[in-house]
Simulated assay, not measured.
Amino acid sequence: MMSLALKSLIFDWRRFSPAVVAVAFSGLLVLLQAALILGIFSLSSLYVTRSSADLWIGYPGVQSVDLGRPISDQAELSAWMQPGVRQVEPFLWGSGEWRTESQGMVNVYIVGVSLDPGALALATVLTPAQRANLAEPGAVLIDDGDVHKLGVQLGDAVEINGRRVHVVGLTHGLRGLGGVNVIASLSTTRDLDPAAGPAGMVAYVLAQFDSSKAATSAVHRLNRVGQSSGFEALSTEAFAERTTSYWLSESGAGVAFLFGSVVALAVAIIITSQTLTAAVVGSIKEYAALRALGFSMGSLRAIVLEQSAWVGVAGLAAAGLLTFLLAFVARAQGVPIILSPLMMVAAGAIIILVALGSGAWALRRVALADPASLLL
């Protein structure tokens, strides 16, 4: 049978609807803040997650993919010696000054990738045709989201570090978090920034294996060799997580986002608690009538908490619907949004706890439900 708390909510829905709206927007705020934080900072690991390598070999302790330092060619040889290895390729990360007449100078990262049709680096982004275009000396690719910032169009010629290059193609979804990224071949990258790969050294070595078990075993073996040879092996998932964590925890932007989320959650809790308290106060006469019918104070408190739980459930459903609608709009506009199942479960738990906590805060008003007040 339907409980008394739920019946009262349905009958007097106008009184409790502001509380449902407050909970819904609290949940929307929590979910979107978390989704935006993860979405924005996941941009820092795009070059890792958009590649098909099973592991990355870089400088020991490297914190982020954009902080790569040259490692010796011993890393590539060691990777080829691992059982179950299928493919190994170098990856360069340099820097430069992009100069145009219209925009002046823009600092850019130069990403050097293999041009093989089945290359591991950016395997899910670059097409074989784009890799073939990069074979031309001085050819580069830029992201379509950086066209305005760089002040060029497809086919334009510019200078990087004083050397002439020309834009032969546009990528999509590769806008960098720490700056503008320019993609080139390995040879072009070395010409533009000799420090990116001096004496045959590379920033990273990417490797793919026959199975995940072989890749996991290779990580342990490579790290034993790397202790003396000056390199460290990481699985793709571990390197992407390390990169995102670095930007999230070490950068000032990450701390600011987290502080803003805490403030937003505190505001949501205050608004929800005040709204629920107002709804309880508005129902004091109904609670007083229940006292007159023999309900104990404990029963009234249980009714208020159950009403708070139902308000939380209704608000959670509304927040979920609004979140998915806004996330769809955001993705259509190119705004990075990440909604993981774990995040949604955690946000749902927070929303229910906010509703129950607000109901518990409103319990202090239940003591006003004196049957004598019905005579007034």
Rank of each mutant, 00 (worst) to 15 (best):
G138M: 13
I160C: 11
A214S: 13
V85M: 14
E97T: 13
G84F: 08
R190E: 06
S102D: 13
R86D: 13
G138W: 12
G169P: 02
V88I: 12
R86M: 15
E101R: 07
A132M: 11
V165H: 03
G155F: 08
K149L: 14
G145Y: 09
V88T: 12
G96Y: 09
I142R: 04
V111E: 12
L177F: 14
V182F: 02
L174N: 09
I142C: 09
A207K: 11
V158L: 13
T124V: 02
S185P: 05
A123G: 09
L141C: 09
G173R: 04
S211H: 09
V106W: 00
V205I: 15
L150N: 13
T100M: 04
L186E: 11
D156C: 04
T100W: 00
G169N: 09
H166F: 14
A129P: 00
E89Y: 05
G112N: 08
E97F: 15
Y109W: 11
I110M: 10
G104E: 03
G197Q: 07
G84K: 11
G84H: 10
I183H: 05
I110A: 02
F91P: 00
D116Q: 14
Q103C: 05
D143R: 03
M201K: 12
A214F: 01
S211A: 02
A121E: 10
G162M: 01
R86L: 15
D116K: 14
I160G: 10
S211G: 02
V158G: 01
I160W: 06
D146L: 02
T124N: 11
A184K: 07
V180P: 03
F209G: 02
E89P: 03
V140Y: 09
A129L: 15
N181G: 02
A203T: 15
A199R: 10
R175Y: 00
V167K: 01
H166L: 01
E136S: 13
E89W: 03
Q82G: 00
K213Y: 07
I142K: 00
M201W: 06
I183Q: 02
I160F: 06
A119S: 15
S102A: 14
V140I: 15
P90E: 13
A132D: 11
G118A: 15
P117D: 09
Q87G: 00
T124G: 06
V165S: 07
R99I: 14
L92T: 06
I110T: 04
L134A: 10
